[in-house]
Amino acid sequence: MLSDPTGSWTPVALSVDLPPGTVVPARTPAGPIALWRSASGRPSASADRCPHRGMRLSHGFVRGETLSCIYHGWSYGAAGNCLRIPAHPGLSPPETIRVATHPVEEAGGVIWVGVGEPATQPPQLAGLVPLRSLQAQAGMAALEAAAGAKADENGLLETTQNSQEIRLLLAFQERDETLIHVLLDGDSSLLERIAVSRAVEALRRKAEAIEAEGSSR
């Protein structure tokens, strides 16, 4: 998470995990979001709650350039305005029906969601490409303890695990939960990629053991 006085950016997902025409759940410091990509490829982030009856919008579906709620099919545009209420086909939904939205930036294969109005752009991950995302039932401190290294102000952490050099981009989820994006050099081989992925799983096991021990004390 990169913070400045006006807001912050959170790396919520990898571009490959959000193909056109899909919606996924994600989390920011401001709460849960429905992250979706329209058929034409545009990513958007809205609050993960349909204002009609409170259903999670991340359970919904994307048709064309709109996100629809699975419960009653209410559809929303990228700006969060309600475009369609299927129970009333003749009705143009009033402007007041809308979901809160967040700014989205996509760079280097990572999707960042802004909370507030960050004045800066999300950090560049020069030379690195994302491999995969995984969630740990462990807080930042436990992950740093397991890695024997500290994350920088952008959430970047470098360490060696099973004699494998790994670089992680960490995003805070809850006090005891962290989203890990695994990064590596763009020219890594298939075997290197698999080795890094497995090394990060080992690191996660270690961090979760530390977290569990800490919370049982």
Partner: peptide, 13 residues
């Protein structure tokens, strides 16, 4: 279930 108006948006349906 929210009983206060404002938390959810009903229509004629």
């Amino acid at each position: 279930l929210p009983l206060d108006p404002g938390m959810e948006i009903p229509t004629r349906a």
